[in-house]
Design a protein around this nucleic acid. Structure first.
Lengths: 207, 207
DNA sequence: TAAAATAGTGTACACGTGTACACTGAAAAT
DNA sequence: ATTTTCAGTGTACACGTGTACACTATTTTA
């Protein structure tokens, strides 16, 4: 009843996922991993791989889901910290930088597959990023009482800036990362300030 | 003296470059190309490849240079148009979108190799993008009389936003691209507005 | 308790890869 | 006119790949 068999299966499935994630690095992308490599790293015979995923593509999409999950943990943590007070922008950026530092491989996966060669991957990553953006959009609309259109534009721009900064921060030492964080905070302030101005005056329609 | 030999060599070298560029697409990245494929597409025996490049890596870096060249043409064209008057931001974005449309593969190359697995590639792409950013920074400083630090932050943010928009615009139809252009223009206005405000007041140092 | 299901193994195969090597023929140098 | 250089060819090899297939051992079902 406990399903000692299903339990074991789930365990080796995890081993495959972890093996794949573990092989990612700045010089190794998911698409450069082979089924055999991943199976070997997980301590499995190559053909056993098929008991869990029909091909590497399917494993990859699972990894993207996994990454989405991590992204939501990140959001939750940022929200918690913000509730305790302080600069929203600064807290968000610092939290994101911590995420990059301890989840480099996961972030790399998102970053690369977003412009990768598989339409399914691109769609999956964009779905996660969109979720992230809409969360932020809601927050901006509510907290800053912004026009809905303006809030979306701001959220979208902010996410773009932050992800790009994350990319820059991936392979850099702590000092440089700090530098990048400061730059990013200031850029987000530009955007916030501009959005606030336009929200008051209204987006221009012509001319 | 005319170098009928060197002339022919240059010609087949171009064939290799064009063959590689031509094989790029939304579902085909440079790293997924094989030496044999490129040679075949160029109408060459696989081993002849080595008469021109020591390996695919070297060809790839050549392509990045090529892409940088195209990027500068883009800047030149934008500048020319701006001189004739009109909204700087709008002209820039429209020009960039045209670039995406007619040079999709080149832009894809930059986009992907910027977060790719080769440090040399990443460095080469970042070099080109930095050049692009500094050009814009100069312009902003001069035309808008901005504080140097603020101008850099604005230029960097603007380039990030525009490149990201380019990525979004790669595989969509004309209507969607128009939509993306409008969004991008508005976001750049946010940034410009925010930068102008902060340039007047000065960036805050503490608190 | 007997039968069925199934996670994992090992062997085997065809395929595409990078590249070493010996070669050819025409351009360039002597 | 003779020799040298060298862009391009064709053959050959070892290697890693995905995956089909027949198998084993153990859990689950009947």
């Amino acid at each position: 009843m406990s399903g000692i068999r299903a339990q074991q299966k789930e365990k080796t499935r995890r081993q495959l996922i972890d093996a794949a994630l573990g092989q990612l690095s700045s010089e190794r992308s998911f698409s450069s991993l082979s089924l055999r490599e991943v199976a070997k790293e997980a301590g499995l015979a190559p053909t056993s791989f098929y008991r869990h995923f029909s091909d590497m593509n399917e494993l990859g999409l699972t990894l993207v889901d996994e990454a989405g999950l991590t992204l939501r943990q990140l959001m939750r943590q940022a929200r918690q910290r913000i509730e305790k007070g302080g600069s929203v922008i600064q807290i968000s950026v610092v939290t994101f930088m911590e995420f990059i530092e301890s989840n480099g491989n996961i972030f790399r996966l998102l970053l690369r597959e977003r412009s990768g060669t598989s339409a399914a991957f691109r769609a999956a990553v964009n779905r996660e990023v969109r979720y992230f953006t809409l969360e932020l959009c809601d927050y901006l609309q509510q907290a800053n009482k912004l026009n809905a259109d303006v809030a979306f534009l701001q959220a979208d721009a902010a996410v773009t800036i932050v992800f790009s900064a994350g990319s820059d921060a991936l392979d850099v030492d702590k000092d440089d990362r700090q530098q990048i964080a400061l730059r990013t905070i200031q850029q987000l302030r530009f955007i916030a300030r501009g959005a606030a101005e336009f929200s008051n005056r209204g987006l221009k329609s012509k001319t």
